Amino acid sequence: MRLWLLGLILVSGVASAAQSLYSMLAGGDYRPPLSVMQQVEKDFQGVITEFEMEMQEGELVYKLELINPLANAITRFEYRARDGKLLKQKAAKVTADELSEVEATRLITAKHQTFSGLIAMATKDHNGFLTDAKLDHDLGISYLELKLLDDTGKYKLAFDVENLRQLPLLKWD
């Protein structure tokens, strides 16, 4: 009985956090993520490979990763969502864990696309707020995995980078 009650409390806490984030995003008191991404794409060489938002000390923060495959470098950024101010920037060399993302960046570059442009295409028929996006390359497919939040909760999308179309999500039981 206690385990069941603990599970219910955890689930309701997650749902409450999602609703709280949705209320904040619906209030519109922040700089849109695509705007921040476009600024990064304009100011830095490379391709954004990951975006996420999180609360830090009561403040909504956007985290982005940008890979420059020519320099074999990855740069991580943190921006304050309220006004788009850069909070942190850290550069490093690309590691073996990020090679699938490097492969996806090469395709995006060859197709003259941008991360923000792909997100705009992938979300054009969806009314949710973008909370996470990540480029990946698996089983010969470069794709963008997105997490959106609407008034009913969180949901995922997958978008094929090469064919510029939505992919079905596989569900593992």
Rank of each mutant, 00 (worst) to 15 (best):
V40R: 10
Y62I: 07
Y30K: 10
V40Y: 08
F44V: 10
V102S: 01
T95M: 00
G84P: 09
K63D: 10
V61Y: 09
D43W: 01
T49M: 07
M53T: 11
V40I: 13
N72C: 06
G27H: 15
M53E: 09
Q38G: 12
Y30E: 14
A96D: 11
L87D: 03
E101A: 05
E50A: 11
E101S: 04
Y62L: 08
R31W: 14
E65V: 03
Y79T: 00
K88F: 13
V61E: 09
L99R: 02
K88P: 06
Q56R: 15
G27A: 15
E65Y: 03
I74E: 04
K90H: 07
M55F: 08
K93D: 12
I74D: 00
E78D: 10
V94A: 03
Q39S: 10
D97R: 07
I74G: 00
P69E: 06
G28A: 11
E52R: 11
F44K: 13
Q56P: 05
V36T: 05
Y30C: 13
M53K: 07
K90P: 00
F77Y: 07
K93M: 12
R76M: 09
R80M: 10
K90A: 05
K90R: 07
G84D: 11
E50M: 12
Q39I: 05
E65S: 08
M55N: 06
Y62R: 08
S35V: 15
Q89A: 10
I48C: 04
V40N: 08
I74A: 03
D29H: 15
K85T: 14
R31I: 15
A81C: 14
D97K: 09
L64E: 01
L64V: 03
F51T: 04
P32N: 13
E78F: 07
Q38N: 13
F77C: 04
I67K: 00
Q39K: 09
E50T: 13
A96T: 07
Y79A: 00
R80I: 11
E59M: 10
P69K: 03
V47H: 03
A96G: 04
E41Q: 07
M53V: 10
F77E: 05
D29Y: 15
Y79L: 02
V61F: 08
S35Q: 14
M53L: 14
Q38W: 09
E57L: 13
E41N: 02
